[in-house]
Design a protein around this nucleic acid. Structure first.
Lengths: 123, 123
DNA sequence: TTTCCTAATGCAACAGAGTTGCATTAACTT
DNA sequence: AAGTTAATGCAACTCTGTTGCATTAGGAAA
């Protein structure tokens, strides 16, 4: 593991997911934007982290529990409308069968309010 | 309905979803990029169309079946890996309950191969 | 019809996210 | 130490979308 890779992985210490621009800005004192993107690509290919789309289409990354990339897309992700906190959920779901199409993977994003932002605030 | 709105709606004649840049480029002879984006916003707010994120996080739009916006987020979307064809599926799913969080909406994107691109091609 | 007001459009400039090409540096092999 | 490959930095660029401001088009009211 190179120094760069370690720096990036450290950012994933807490179990929240991180949006690419976040990671870039957290590390910008330490390393170049381009490098961060390249390391994220490599980490994703190797299965250390996985990515998914947030509610505005931004790319989010989270640490993979298992290095096995088979299951990486079968858990849901959650994003809080208020604070933006985004995380992997432990709920796994079955990829539905669809007539006339072969489904290879599925992304499920749940959007709502986290505990901190309060259930009552929801509209 | 203004002329602009009509032009945009015509693009949705076939039932496929369309990515914003697609719509922009299809209409660029006729109207300005900014205008297209603004019309898409208005149409979405009014419930004529709805949007969702594609597999690369791009914003896709599709005509709403019903003008009722309540149900708009409860059907799944499909995107073909090969040809990029993207569409609304008729399968509706139940938004899962998650402990400690209030879920307001859910996006489910299924990624795979459509009939034209062949089930056999999948890896 | 003419006047007035608001909504819609066009245009240019900007912003954010990510990519590419190329030069430089670091790390690893032999 | 020399050579090779991988990793990094930097600048420029692309793509997607937004903002501010000026202009135009469409109604409503007189």
């Amino acid at each position: 593991m190179t120094k760069g890779v370690c720096s990036v992985m450290e950012e994933f210490a807490e179990n929240n997911a991180l949006a690419s621009p976040d990671i870039v800005s957290r590390l910008e004192q330490k390393m170049n934007r381009t490098t961060v993107y390249r390391i994220l690509d490599r980490l994703e290919k190797s299965g250390m982290i996985h990515s998914f789309s947030g509610k505005e289409g931004q790319k989010w990354y989270a640490k993979s529990e298992r290095c096995n990339s088979d299951q990486k897309e079968n858990h849901a992700h959650f994003q809080c409308k208020e604070c933006g906190k985004t995380e992997c959920l432990s709920i796994e779901f079955t990829i539905p069968k669809v007539e006339d199409r072969r489904i290879d993977s599925a992304n499920l994003l749940l959007v709502g309010h986290c505990t901190d932002c309060g259930i009552a605030h929801s509209k």
